[in-house]
Write a protein that binds this DNA or RNA. Sequence first.
DNA 1: CTGTTAGCGCATTCAA
DNA 2: TTGAATGCGCTAACAG
Lengths: 342, 342
Amino acid sequence: MATIKQIAEKAGVSPTTVANVIHGRTARVSPETLEKVRAILDREKYAPNMGAIMLARSSSRIIGVIMFREPRRNETVLEDPFSSKVIGSIEREIREAGYYMMLHATDHEEDVLRLVAKWKLAGLILIWVPGEIAGIIRRSVETPVVFIDCVFDEDGQEYHNVALDDEKGGFELTRYLLSMGHERIAFFADSASWPGTADLRFGGCRRAFAEEGKILGNDRFMVLSKDFGERQETYRKLTVPEPPFTALAFFSDYYAAEAIIYCQEHGIEVPGRVSVTGFDDNIFARLVRPRLTTVYQDAALRGQQAVAMLLALIRGEPLESPSVRSPVTLKVRESVGKAARD
Amino acid sequence: MATIKQIAEKAGVSPTTVANVIHGRTARVSPETLEKVRAILDREKYAPNMGAIMLARSSSRIIGVIMFREPRRNETVLEDPFSSKVIGSIEREIREAGYYMMLHATDHEEDVLRLVAKWKLAGLILIWVPGEIAGIIRRSVETPVVFIDCVFDEDGQEYHNVALDDEKGGFELTRYLLSMGHERIAFFADSASWPGTADLRFGGCRRAFAEEGKILGNDRFMVLSKDFGERQETYRKLTVPEPPFTALAFFSDYYAAEAIIYCQEHGIEVPGRVSVTGFDDNIFARLVRPRLTTVYQDAALRGQQAVAMLLALIRGEPLESPSVRSPVTLKVRESVGKAARD
DNA sequence: CTGTTAGCGCATTCAA
DNA sequence: TTGAATGCGCTAACAG
């Protein structure tokens, strides 16, 4: 409630002096005044009017965190436990750095541009943005932008992206499956994971096959429906009358868990008859039985990296590299068995 | 980028006229000017400077959404799928109402007060706040505040709370268990759910017993540890050498699922030897086998109600009632069986 | 070391 | 129907 002016009056000094105290420019204030002003500032619980600061500096301390949502379904990534963790981690990092987080879901780039203009955003974190939209935003905004898990069309631009080593994830997973004797493997992307991400993972899978002198055809790569009933139908086709694959690799722990349960309910033993793998290593992987063999990634780390990179950009500090690729680790648990010899 | 002044210049009118157009005060502008100014506004992609608006009106269109976190563990409610859904729903409602969402986690009331003062918040939604903190905030803030799932000490104040019919949830659940012949039931709150909430549910459980002329002792009510190892130890004690209870009622689907899996791994049949129930009916309830008998609540609805109530307060509209109590529904699935006759 | 002053962009009152 | 003027609280450049 109290303004600098009012504080100044109470202290019997000028507003500038109070401002100097607030901003720690102690060299320009005598020790006594400093002490006195500080005491009053404290007593009056001075809180700066951010509107005035925004106006004067024409920039805010707000970081916009944009989740894209699918236009059709009115859902955001928040529904997913992995994304929630990322967002939770982002919130903490932003807060601890003394910034503020504005959370916004949209599927239109204009919304994002408007948000930046209206609020003079200090920076922008875009989560799971389709590549083409990412390009537009990147080009039309002057504030620092960091993407999370964005796969871009190669347009020569330098993007600041906090990515995952998706290719390696797919590779490790597939190599392991191959080592367990699996060759008839089906790979399932969920429509939520952006095509680019799934493609990278699939590329890794293909490389693992190639290293063994084998070929992995594109027909092994499928996209799972968002609709529960349709997924059940998919699982049914995969198991009746006889599983055409010895292993099912899902790019999401949740769907892997769902498939395991489907199998169990229909008398298909996992991993006896069919092996199943996931991706992310989230809470579902540890809950389901048999425990899921999956690819681990550190959700909190992803958020930290994104904010750290953004802050460096905001402060104009040099970056070691324009983008970061988080490591993945294969977690071998119990959902994969030896493939029966054909 | 463009300001009202610049728009005015291009249109050859005064800033006031432009402002009138922006605010739809069409009565004060001639049709031609209106059209001309609108066109320019559109062409220049005019976006108001929210800082200036904040300054001039001394209020922002920002709604603060505060999640409390446990001081010790650095976690927020975002880790939980149910809370994520609530927050996702809040985000959408805020956005669609033309407001902006500032997400903040803290465990200190001063943080909240400072946030309100700095950003001239239009309103505040507080999620899972401990009762005493809620009181402090409520008393020291003049902006509208809506709580979600807050249980207050009775201090005569009128709170705006979006609560759940926890008592009924506990009641229905227990009545069902009793009807299935269970009397030796243990109830587990998780430390995350605030004591008040758990107490309400437990009160419902007690009422169900009372209606049958039975008494439910406080020793049947336990708090589950946040630590995985300790929980495992709890489950062990509950099953070795012989389950002392015929039913375990958890106030959280996740822990119910965890317990079911523990039992299955240790040869205790669910629901054959011991029955298990959950609370919330979230994704875990549907994933685990046997499917969880649990108490359903509508996460998205909770968020909607909170924002709707807050908007009414902001706009000064009359409220039907100061607080709302969302309904719960018992979902009978397969995790409860008939209790063996003693 | 301290004070004065001119904006920042918008809302709003009052005058034309 | 339109315009001019003032103030919101702060920053920053400048003057003492």
